[in-house]
Design a protein around this nucleic acid. Structure first.
Lengths: 275, 275
DNA sequence: TAGTGGTCTAGACCACCGT
DNA sequence: CGGTGGTCTAGACCACTAA
């Protein structure tokens, strides 16, 4: 047990990692009830570095060999940790170049969370039909209602930023949604900034508000359109609309955005894969 | 290159695997444009054994060490292949016991494809609310319509088995769906068998019709209830319903079932996770 | 106690990328 | 060319399960 640690050469670990690494044994931590394998501990350390912003979205992280030296483990162990993070979409591996922090700026993963597809589209169709046009109807500060507060895990009446917008695909209004962002982090967000920004909202949040959305949960229902909703989406009143409530999480399972979207599914559908 | 193969002891591979293994070099197949790494070839061989029914759902497959000997590769290579198949839900690993072929009979994965959740349910709620009751309204042979034929990849007018049923959760009708099964494989399916069977439909298909559903694609829309649909689901006519079209695939990406379901989302919702 | 999957290591070679 | 991730091996030890 102990001689394993002694025989391992001093890895001169990065300062912010040393404590965690030294406090945990590099061996299997036998008889420890809260045991977690080494590669998961490494994964936790990398995740913490991502949370802390040591490595920012789009940036190159240290090579596997480098990380293995820092953590004082073998490259294979680092590899398994990075593999899982890549599978979860937090990191992106590129052979010959290195491992990068995932970002919503990449062309490949734009509109990663928008599952709308045009009906006519074949199997290999892009997830989000083009051309896409956005109309921002509103951007204001308000107080969290009970529903919004509960969902975002904040207190009723706390400050939230609210965005109301319309998405048009090929000229047809398809999505009408309210977006709620918690706390003072998004104070600087204005209607003008939204109008002028090219690219997905999540890319804007990442670049200018230090909030990266990592994963999301959605609840889907069918509802009848109100008069106002019908007018905006150009459907008949009481026509069926797909209600999509999305709660997005940033690093560390932190709820960071709540969306309530109404989808006009006359010529588009929500696509899902089950495994 | 060649001496690698020569120096490797004869693995006495299983007959059905020998051809593929011998025809491929165990080394990296350099300069082969259709190159696939060894572990993917192994994965392909295992998948083929699953398709052929060499190992049936619920059964124990050979140990990693055993497979490694058969294929003449290291255990680590087999491990990586099995890892991917387990991640895709085709295999199930159990420490200390072995690796099993996934089955819809397991308690853990019952109703794996049914994403309906009661609204009140908390985060840790079971995916499918209990008690669940099923009413089979119809089970008949018919000819594939153009839509069904196109979806299932068969010819218009070919024989299909059609099931119409209603699912009730806590006494409330929530799902009304038409199920289309291709070809003569399901000839023996009767209303009586459906009534008497306990457990998920997919478990029945697996046990008695040698068809295991591996993955599925769904298209979701909102539609207004027809008079008949409204009556069955006990909602108002024209009330919004969630239309879920599901195409399920068996081994080898074979389309094996098409479902058209209407979900009453008054007190339940469709839950989805985005990564 | 024997056998299984799970973790970890050390080292080799390859494919890919930018310089 | 050097550095990166990708593949593959061989061997050790651990945790879990069933007999």
């Amino acid at each position: 047990m102990h001689d394993m640690m002694a025989s391992r050469p001093a890895p001169t670990p990065a300062p912010e990692l040393q404590a965690a690494h030294v406090s945990e044994s590099a061996s299997k931590l036998a008889s420890n009830p809260s045991f977690s394998p080494l590669y998961r501990q490494i994964k936790g350390l990398i995740t913490r570095s991502l949370q802390q912003g040591d490595w920012k979205p789009g940036e190159l992280i240290p090579s596997e060999a480098d990380l293995a030296r820092r953590f004082g483990v073998s490259q294979g162990t680092v590899r398994k940790a990075v593999d899982e993070l890549a599978a979860e979409g937090l990191l992106l591996r590129r052979q010959g170049r290195g491992t990068f922090v995932s970002t919503h700026h990449e062309e490949r993963v734009k509109f990663r969370f928008l599952r709308i597809v045009r009906d006519a589209a074949g199997d290999g169709a892009r997830p989000v039909p083009q051309p896409m046009e956005r109309q921002f109807l509103e951007c204001k500060r308000s107080r969290a209602s009970q529903e919004v507060a509960r969902t975002l895990g904040i207190k009723v009446g706390e400050s939230v930023t609210q965005i109301r917008r319309l998405l048009l695909l090929a000229g047809e209004p398809v999505v009408y949604e309210d977006i709620y962002l918690p706390g003072p982090a998004f104070r600087g967000l204005t209607a003008e900034r939204l109008e002028s920004y090219r690219g997905p909202l999540y890319a804007l949040f990442e670049s200018e508000f230090s909030t990266r959305m990592v994963r999301a949960e959605e609840k889907l229902r069918a509802v009848n359109a109100s008069a106002q909703e019908a007018q905006l989406l150009r459907v008949r009143e009481a026509e069926a609309l797909l209600l999509v409530e999305r709660l997005s999480f940033s690093y560390g399972e932190l709820p960071a955005e709540y969306r309530r979207g109404l989808y006009n599914t006359r010529h588009h559908h929500y696509r899902n894969e089950l495994n």
